[in-house]
C-alpha cells in the first residue's frame, strides 16, 4: 500500500501533483535525522497547515511506523499548535504569515516544508519547485542545521539549490 506513495508518483510524476507532494513529504523523513530529545515521544507527527486536500490524501496512508515511531498525520489550524510536530508542511497566504510561523518554530527541531515562493531563501527548510513538469525542491541546509536537523547528503544532492 505504501508503494502508492513512495515511488510510482515520484517517477511518473505525471499523475496528481498532490500525490507526488505527499510521497515527497513521506520520503523526506527517511533522509533527515532529528536530534534525540528528552521529550522524544513514540510518535512522529507530520502536520499539515493550510492544505486540507493534502491532508485528506495523506490520511489514507495505512497506519504505519516511520523511523521506528508511529506515524501521525495531523491537520493543524492554529499556527501555535505546530510546535508539537516534527514535520510541518504549510501553505500560507503571504510572506508575513510564513515568517510568523517560521519564527514560532525556529527554536525547535522541526522540518519546515512549503511550496511558497522563496520559502527556502527566507528561512524555510525545504521549498517545493515545479521544474519541467516535475516536482523538485530547494533546501536551506543552514536553517536545518540551526534547528538541529541533519539532512542526508543524498537528499542535498537531489536539491535544485542548497542554501
Amino acid at each position: 500500500m505504501l508503494t502508492w506513495f513512495s515511488l510510482a508518483p515520484a517517477i511518473g510524476q505525471a499523475a496528481d501533483p498532490t500525490k507526488v507532494k505527499a510521497a515527497f513529504l513521506y520520503n523526506f523523513v527517511k533522509f533527515i535525522h532529528w536530534p534525540q530529545t528528552n521529550e522524544t515521544s513514540n510518535e512522529f507527527k507530520l502536520c499539515i497547515y493550510g492544505e486540507p486536500a493534502l491532508f485528506e490524501l495523506m490520511q489514507k496512508i495505512p497506519a504505519k511506523s516511520i523511523r521506528g515511531q508511529a506515524l501521525l498525520i495531523l491537520d493543524i489550524q492554529q499556527p501555535t499548535l505546530l510546535q508539537q510536530c516534527q514535520l510541518v508542511y504549510m501553505r500560507t497566504q503571504n510572506y508575513t504569515a510564513t515568517q510568523f510561523i517560521l519564527d514560532n518554530l525556529s527554536a525547535h527541531p522541526i522540518l519546515t516544508v512549503s511550496d511558497v515562493d522563496t520559502f527556502a531563501k527566507s528561512g524555510g527548510m525545504i521549498e517545493f519547485k515545479q521544474k519541467e513538469q516535475k516536482l523538485r525542491f530547494e533546501i536551506n541546509n543552514s536553517a536545518a542545521e540551526l534547528a538541529g536537523l541533519r539532512i542526508s547528503s543524498k537528499l542535498l544532492e537531489l536539491a535544485l539549490e542548497v542554501y
Binding site: N27, K134, E157, L158
Partner: peptide, 9 residues
C-alpha cells in the same frame, strides 16, 4: 536510493 525515491532519473 534517494534518487529513485524522488524520481531523479
Amino acid at each position: 536510493n534517494a534518487a529513485i525515491l524522488f524520481g531523479d532519473t
